[in-house]
Design a protein around this nucleic acid. Structure first.
Lengths: 360, 360
DNA sequence: CACGTATGCACAATCGATGGTGCAATGGAA
DNA sequence: TTCCATTGCACCATCGATTGTGCATACGTG
């Protein structure tokens, strides 16, 4: 590291980064030759192998790093793909992030994810920033207002794909929330019947009224009740956001039966439910059973848990990347089935939870 | 949306994005004036308020979005801060990501996080990509080889800060792994004493031998044993990576006592331990108690869980951003104390877990 | 030897934003 | 009226990489 200039000097490191011009001078050649060699187009440009090797060697010696800003500025495609992400506080979004990055990289794209805390203004601001970044494509995950983002991007000529929550102005990939919720509800209903002997409507907790997923899951929830000739009273549907605190407060102020079942709309909501259980000693295998939309490995071990609807992240991302390739003209909506998991006591495998297949 | 050009036409959207030149032409002024107005330096450049307003209006009408590549290319600072992140599969890293983004944005910096799957080559590749992005600063979180990244960045004149795992060539912020592990070990030891009446060394499971955190936690683990005059047999220390599968396999092939305690080195490792428990019916409040480094809200509810050492993410990030401001000359290592949590049965609050304070 | 073709490379415009500098118009003071 | 200061803006080089084009030289063929 005989770098010459003393590193780390005060504010704003002033080390001059090596550019293709520096390398050209050392190699006694032109910047365009250096550029061609370093970006792999040198054969097309009829650069001799000898020169190519020399340039490559010098670039390595000098610790050359491409200036992507300059490169992207000149090219028409940036190869940057952006994603907007609401939160990182559960396995579902975490898995989406990891897979999006992995698949992007695999295709030579550079993924940039930004987390918007479920705040609409932050979403738009983040989308604007990604547009400024010249992303070639933007995936809006769980966006509260996907159409706003689609418009904003369309104005800049950027394609968008909605994930997790659908929009009307771009193709969307979402879970089959209706089907997943219906199946999960069936399971909870059958369990409270079997264990408690009760045949009462469940409680539904968590989510946003304006949120398409919540609406669809509620529809599935009602469908499963209707199958048994049950109607769900309005006061058993508690939709005041996903946050754990909201759920906890709501349960705290309610007058609840001795034995009942809950449909919990997300793992983060479940945290609130579990806190309430703990505080009020409603836990153990006493009078409460719940099922939860989304999967969490530890939550699966809670004794009151009778089922979880895992969203199929690998297939969702596969669908997203198919759309990237196909450039669908219409604003199709692809629904990916959920994976329903129930506790192992009902099966004989070694797993605590296993996948089940209800008749559609 | 009377955009004129037909949007979404075939491959490579060819909508021409509005630039300062377009706006200048519409406004009948010069690009430099437009630039000054739109980036806020117009007063310094003595642009009249009238012109400023006109330009602003036109920019909005045209849906202008700054081309950050061009902007960054010209300026000497990019205001981009990069972070390398091993995984998104637990609350600890998730919280780091969220807070890093929030704090960066608050300072007008643009955060870019990239996930490297704990793979050394991917880390280096990602670091290189971030360097190409002209990041002003790079935070290496949980990097397997932080010094390699420091060197790589130093060559490009980019400061780095290590988070979670320390390095020798950049300032580092880590948890007090030794203290946290010692306290957690004390708790587990005292619980198996109280509940089982056994006074035997615990098992330690999870982590990497080459990993500084694992080494420190092991030291704390041994220290707590030494306090009681206990020595830990080598075969009770199972360090074969963090992955859940490894833990599960290891436990499966071991000959374990009837009643014992485990120190679990991460929540992801804990998933394996729990799977093993389930499969072998070692769960319930039978013969096993464990404590876990890192916090997970659901794992906290497992009946065998006697304590968790939560890493104090807010304080860790506060320390990181202090370092960004101070530009520490030395390669200081800041250790942030962990927050030790034990089940609520021992306390009287409504929480399932509460924070405890052992005498250091 | 003449002429066409292939090889190997350099030149220069370009992407969009920025900021130093220059210059005309205006205002005010002497 | 003259002169200087201020206001208000335009001009242009620049950041680093990319790419169309042009021009030597080498090579091969008749």
């Amino acid at each position: 590291m005989d770098n010459g200039s003393g590193a780390g000097n005060g504010a704003g490191n002033s080390i001059k980064r090596t550019t293709i011009y520096d390398i050209a001078e050392i190699a006694g050649t032109s910047p365009s030759a250096v550029s061609a060699v370093l970006n792999g187009t040198w054969k097309k440009r009829r650069i001799s192998e000898k020169l190519a090797e020399r340039i490559t060697r010098i670039a390595e010696e000098q610790g050359y790093a491409l200036n992507l800003q300059a490169s992207v500025l000149r090219r028409e495609r940036s190869n940057i793909v952006g994603m907007i992400m609401p939160k990182y506080d559960n396995r579902y979004f975490g898995a989406i992030a990891e897979q999006f990055e992995a698949r992007s990289r695999q295709r030579g794209l550079f993924p940039v994810i930004t987390c918007t805390q479920r705040e609409p203004e932050l979403e738009v601001e983040a989308a604007r920033a990604l547009v400024s970044y010249q992303v070639d494509l933007l995936i809006a995950t769980g966006a509260t207002d996907p159409d706003r983002i689609s418009e904003l991007c369309a104005a800049a000529g950027i394609r968008t794909i909605n994930l997790d929550l659908p929009g009307s102005r771009s193709p969307s990939v979402v879970s089959d929330n209706f089907g997943g919720a219906r199946d999960l509800t069936r399971i909870i209903l059958s369990r409270i019947r079997a264990e408690f002997g009760v045949r009462e409507p469940l409680y539904f907790i968590g989510g946003r009224a304006s949120d398409h997923n919540t609406a669809e899951r509620l529809r599935g929830f009602r469908e499963a009740h209707a199958e048994l000739g049950l109607e769900v009273p309005a006061d058993q549907i508690i939709i005041r956001g996903y946050a754990a605190e909201k759920a906890e407060e709501a349960l705290e102020t309610m007058d609840l039966p001795e034995r009942f079942g809950i449909f919990v709309n997300s793992t983060i909501t479940l945290e609130g439910v579990v806190r309430w259980m703990q505080r009020n000693k409603r836990g153990g295998r006493s009078g409460l059973r719940f099922g939860c939309f989304d999967w969490d490995s530890f939550a699966a071990r809670l004794p009151e848990n009778v089922g979880m609807a895992e969203q199929d992240v690998p297939h969702m991302l596969e669908a997203v990347f198919e759309m990237i390739d196909m450039q669908p003209s219409a604003n199709i909506l692809r629904k990916i089935p959920c994976i329903l998991r129930v506790p192992d006591e009902w099966s004989r495998t070694g797993e605590a939870f296993r996948e089940v297949n209800l008749a559609g």
